[in-house]
Simulated scan of single mutants.
Amino acid sequence: MSANFHPLVYIIDYILGIIMWTLVGRVAMNIFQREDSQFFFMKAFVKFTNPLLKVFKPVTPKFIIQPLVPLYVAWFFFMIRFYLMPYLLGYSVMGMLSFPLESEISRQIYQFFNSIKF
């Protein structure tokens, strides 16, 4: 990692990032599958994200169509990761790919493709 954060910061960011990307994944999967589908991944997305959607129901506007509600909730997690966490840590907004989870994933992808000999 490029910054010297306490390991708890990374753990919190990884958890928030996984939640955020699971919500985004549910919206993407919902393009191809119904929410009541028997497909394993869709059932997993619905099972893990429904409790979050219930928690955020009071702040979710009624005009948002149901398939996009998880994306709206994911936006909250993005805002927490992009604005609140750096503010609480005493940093300004760090910019794209500054999230530890996404930075580590992009670093692994770069190393993978860099190791392939064409």
Rank of each mutant, 00 (worst) to 15 (best):
F41G: 02
S37Y: 11
Q111D: 14
Q66S: 15
Y110M: 12
T22R: 00
F78K: 09
P67W: 00
F78Y: 15
E104Q: 06
F77T: 08
F77K: 03
R34M: 04
M20Y: 08
V46H: 02
F40P: 10
R34F: 03
F40H: 09
V59N: 05
N114I: 11
P86I: 01
F63I: 14
I31M: 09
L53E: 08
Y91T: 06
F82D: 10
L84N: 02
P100I: 09
V55H: 04
T49P: 14
Y91S: 09
Q111C: 00
F41N: 01
P67K: 00
T49H: 01
T60F: 06
P70T: 12
F76I: 12
M20Q: 14
R26Y: 12
T22F: 11
F113S: 06
N4Q: 13
K57P: 00
Q38S: 15
M29P: 00
I11T: 12
F99K: 00
L52I: 13
P51R: 04
A3Y: 09
L53A: 09
M29H: 01
I80T: 13
I31N: 01
V59D: 06
G95I: 12
F76S: 08
I109S: 07
T49N: 09
F40M: 11
I19V: 15
I64S: 07
F56C: 10
P51A: 10
F118K: 04
F45H: 07
I12L: 15
T49S: 15
F82M: 08
M96T: 10
P61E: 09
R34T: 15
I80A: 15
A74P: 08
F82C: 02
F77A: 13
I65T: 11
E104M: 06
F39G: 01
M29C: 12
S92K: 07
F118D: 03
K54D: 13
K54C: 05
V93N: 02
L8Q: 06
P67E: 03
K54T: 11
Q108R: 06
Q66I: 10
L89N: 02
T49I: 08
Y14M: 05
Y14D: 09
L88F: 06
L52D: 06
S98H: 05
V27C: 12
Q111S: 09
M94R: 08
S103I: 02
R34W: 00
F112Y: 13
P51F: 05
W75F: 15
Y91P: 06
Y72P: 09
N30V: 01
L88C: 12
